[in-house]
């Protein structure tokens, strides 16, 4: 099972549900990356990371396979997503080499939260609609 995929999701008879499900997974992965940035806001040499923007194409592959890591170290799923994107444009680089801006990260975190809430709301709505469509009497 891989972050970002919903293989064989049987809760998504409609493609909109599938899309919402993928976006919810994407938003969760993004929030996790942001959490890593904020936790390491004072770690020397730490570079802020982000993941690729959400691809709303219904026929897109759910997860982009990253290139082989230079050290051939086995990457976790989250690291694979985070590594696939170059460093974000930074607001400020401290002389310690740390590029995390807490303000920027909190803004992105708010976006990720809203994306997740909306995706979950869409899934909920379509789920309810589907259940009421098959209810007898």
């Amino acid at each position: 099972m891989i972050v970002g995929t919903v293989d064989g999701s049987s809760s998504a008879p409609l493609w909109v549900s599938e899309l919402a499900s993928r976006k919810a997974s994407w938003a969760a992965a993004r929030q996790a990356t942001i959490a890593g940035n904020i936790a390491n806001a004072d770690t020397p040499e730490y570079r802020a990371r982000d993941i690729a923007p959400f691809n709303p194409d219904p026929y897109a592959r759910p997860l982009q396979m990253s290139r082989t890591h230079a050290l051939h170290m086995e990457l976790t799923d989250l690291e694979r997503l985070a590594e696939a994107v170059d460093e974000t444009g930074t607001w400020d680089i401290a002389h310690s080499g740390n590029t995390v801006s807490i303000d920027e990260e909190m803004i992105k975190s708010g976006q990720a939260s809203r994306d997740h809430q909306m995706s979950v709301a869409v899934m909920s709505t379509f789920h309810r609609m589907m259940l009421s469509a098959v209810s007898f009497r």
């Binding site: 099972m1 999701s9 809760s11 899934m123 098959v134």
Partner: peptide, 28 residues
């Protein structure tokens, strides 16, 4: 701990949908 929360929830939702469908068919 093998699946993410979202995966488990979605499997539950899918099971509920299929079960409701099966029950509706049965009733009819």
């Amino acid at each position: 701990g093998e699946a993410t929360i979202q995966e488990v929830v979605e499997a539950m939702m899918g099971a509920e949908q299929q079960l409701r469908t099966a029950l509706a068919i049965r009733d009819r």
